[in-house]
Design a protein around this nucleic acid. Sequence first.
DNA 1: ACAAAGGCGGTAACAACGTTACCGAAGAAC
DNA 2: GTTCTTCGGTAACGTTGTTACCGCCTTTGT
Lengths: 216, 216
Amino acid sequence: MTTAYEKAQLAGQNAVRTAILDAAIRLLADEGPAALTVRRISGDVGCSTKVIYTMFGGKDGLVEALWREGFARFGRALAAAPRGDDPVKHLAALGRAYRAYALAEPNYYRIMFEAAVPGFRPGPEAYAESRETLAILVGVVEECVKAGVFTEGEPAAIADTFWMAAHGAVSLELAGIFGPEEGERRFHMLTTALVRAYGTQSRPGPAEPDQERNRQ
Amino acid sequence: MTTAYEKAQLAGQNAVRTAILDAAIRLLADEGPAALTVRRISGDVGCSTKVIYTMFGGKDGLVEALWREGFARFGRALAAAPRGDDPVKHLAALGRAYRAYALAEPNYYRIMFEAAVPGFRPGPEAYAESRETLAILVGVVEECVKAGVFTEGEPAAIADTFWMAAHGAVSLELAGIFGPEEGERRFHMLTTALVRAYGTQSRPGPAEPDQERNRQ
DNA sequence: ACAAAGGCGGTAACAACGTTACCGAAGAAC
DNA sequence: GTTCTTCGGTAACGTTGTTACCGCCTTTGT
């Protein structure tokens, strides 16, 4: 009898690598980050723990691979949001896709944005990758500015605030603060408020000295 | 020679309890949630691990005590925000106090809002306590509505969106996405945008059927 | 084609973790 | 004064991530 692991072993080390990743992905989706133990994964695959160390350099390496996988899925989910004809509608669809992804794959989201695996912190180049995933959001905001529905402002900064708002909303919802129905209402309320704000932004004109800014 | 632990033991079990909590608090602040191990805490206090189990029922019980301590500190920080004469200014001060607390005691914040201690999930009554801490925010929003600067809307819902926005901002900043200076700019931009949005909210009047809401 | 060398992987161990069974001691109850 | 309960220290158990050791297989050199 040949196990699945032995078959993958014959197919080359790349097949073993993807077999391990698949097992980890299934484990993460089914039972959450706490089930991601080196022994459990190697047991599911049918190999020893040593293989994970030679393939990924340790648990952190494997989690980083999961981290990248999560961002890839996240990016595809955002790219699949209906574009429509109106950049504002595209922006709204992007927001719904953001929340839908976080709720559909909460364990990936927690690994990506909340340090769900105790020892793991993504490297500095990982932050760049996260921003790259959110580049699509910057593009849509740029279109909104060009179309004149957003009156002024740096697109990257505006996009960041949408990101912060969406992240805060789904983060609290994932934490259990809001139920699903309340979560959707609040998410919609927050994002539409932001759209309204940037549509009615006062020009830098006179007055409004913003003297409160640097107190505290 | 009498150790600090023996002295506390003579002073009653309450003194032992606070001695353990103090050690855990110091450990959390100095080295983060990963350093919160039963052995380490009991070693610092000078007692055996068993005491923590009789006092708190296990590590989760101790972490829950830290969780409550964090919310108490958070509540005091929010209450200390300068009230001023204008509810909008009070709201802005509240936002700055929110961010300042999260940056000043990030490990508490992570325990409270991101599951920084692996096994620990706060109980259902804990969510009620978290909302109670944020009640001050609801009160300020109510004042803004009464004063007419916020044109309409349920104060609790509006307050929730401010909470979501603030949480998302500091959560991404704590994750290292934004540097401190950029973090402050983005935080200010997001919160002022929300204030602007609720000040210019369109009355439920005609048109605006909001037909995008329940698609996806 | 045969020997030498290198690397890959399984076994078993190590340190550290949360948790608990055991048991002695100390105080409470009658 | 005797008994009984409760509390805490010791030492263990079952986990975890990680690695030293050592065969076995593949590859390379001639």
